Amino acid sequence: MSWAGTGEAYAASYAALCAGTGERLREIAGPARDRTLLDVGAGDGTLAAAWTHAGWQVTAAEPEPSMREAAAARHPDLRLVADGLPGLTFGDRAFDIVTANFVLNHVPDPRAAAAELRRVADHLVIATTWSSSPTTLWADVIARAGLPRASGARLPAEKDFERTSDGFARMLADAGWHPEVDELTWTWLAEPDALWRSVAGGVAGAGAYYATLADTDRRRFRAAFDELVADRLDGGRMPITQTAAIAVERLGRRRSSAPVAGIRPR
């Protein structure tokens, strides 16, 4: 899946969804105390800016130019670098904390990428992935439109991992982590126009699918989307419930039997 050129569409749509983990991640990390943090795959900078406002010394690493442009426009004081997985240019243990929010589910080699996150972290590394995501919404739209099901781009079997909390934990363990994993479920109250902009702008799997459709099928897709919105709209917004798996490793403290607050060992 290519994210090229999707920065503005992502910023106007799924950036708000992905930011739903932010409060929990900051709770896990604790007070900033002037510590350094690397946010890998920072997208439009929403979470990186929130870390900055909480007192962290933040570096936002994002390889996609359109995402960096969106981030710079919205957060001009944010330190942005053109860097990303699978090979970060930073030295070993370069940052107190390293975060990757919904990144490992998009890379071609999740284990190599996870090992790289761990390499540049000194005290703490946190990563998230979807256990349940808005892809079900678009599957419903496709079914209502009578269009062929999206096949979804899957990784080769030896690279992929089961998209559950336990599967995420096993993948990270393969990458050298000693993870503690828990789940966070919340409801995103989405603006229908923002959802449509994500698809029309080519964001994520639904956007990639829509881009392959002929004009006639695009009209069927849009009509089905409008019908589904009419069925599910609540107070002008679409409530969409999803679940994220949140994995944490506190480096150098693996002998401790005390779990991270809000996280259960796996």
Results as ranks from 00 to 15, higher is better:
residue 140 D to M: 14
residue 52 T to H: 07
residue 195 L to M: 09
residue 232 R to I: 13
residue 254 R to N: 15
residue 113 A to Y: 01
residue 1 M to F: 03
residue 26 R to T: 00
residue 89 T to G: 15
residue 85 L to R: 02
residue 153 A to C: 15
residue 1 M to K: 05
residue 145 A to F: 06
residue 119 R to G: 09
residue 9 A to T: 11
residue 85 L to V: 06
residue 135 T to R: 15
residue 19 A to C: 03
residue 172 L to M: 04
residue 180 E to P: 12
residue 212 T to R: 02
residue 12 A to K: 12
residue 158 E to P: 04
residue 239 P to L: 04
residue 89 T to R: 15
residue 74 R to N: 05
residue 137 L to D: 01
residue 17 L to M: 09
residue 66 S to K: 12
residue 219 R to N: 04
residue 127 A to H: 08
residue 111 R to D: 06
residue 215 D to Q: 02
residue 23 E to R: 13
residue 51 W to Y: 05
residue 53 H to E: 03
residue 128 T to H: 09
residue 71 A to D: 02
residue 227 E to R: 12
residue 112 A to F: 13
residue 266 R to I: 05
residue 74 R to E: 05
residue 94 A to G: 05
residue 67 M to G: 11
residue 187 T to Y: 07
residue 88 L to A: 08
residue 235 G to S: 15
residue 32 A to H: 04
residue 239 P to D: 04
residue 20 G to V: 07
residue 260 V to H: 12
residue 182 D to A: 08
residue 162 E to D: 14
residue 251 L to I: 15
residue 226 D to A: 11
residue 119 R to S: 05
residue 21 T to E: 13
residue 152 G to F: 06
residue 218 R to A: 00
residue 142 I to M: 06
residue 4 A to I: 08
residue 177 W to V: 09
residue 262 G to H: 11
residue 221 F to Q: 03
residue 59 T to W: 00
residue 253 R to D: 12
residue 204 A to T: 03
residue 73 A to D: 15
residue 77 D to S: 10
residue 150 A to E: 06
residue 252 G to Y: 13
residue 168 F to K: 13
residue 129 T to E: 07
residue 44 D to H: 10
residue 242 Q to N: 11
residue 235 G to A: 03
residue 17 L to R: 06
residue 203 V to L: 10
residue 70 A to L: 11
residue 72 A to H: 11
residue 76 P to S: 13
residue 258 A to C: 15
residue 248 V to W: 02
residue 237 R to V: 12
residue 62 E to M: 01
residue 41 G to N: 11
residue 245 A to T: 11
residue 3 W to E: 04
residue 52 T to W: 00
residue 174 D to P: 05
residue 41 G to I: 07
residue 203 V to N: 11
residue 35 R to F: 01
residue 178 H to T: 14
residue 10 Y to P: 03
residue 69 E to F: 02
residue 69 E to H: 08
residue 179 P to L: 04
residue 102 F to C: 12
residue 187 T to C: 09
residue 259 P to A: 13
residue 92 D to T: 14
residue 243 T to W: 14
residue 186 W to Y: 09
residue 32 A to C: 02
residue 202 G to K: 00
residue 252 G to N: 10
residue 191 E to D: 14
residue 103 V to G: 02
residue 131 S to C: 14
residue 88 L to W: 02
residue 189 L to S: 11
residue 82 A to T: 10
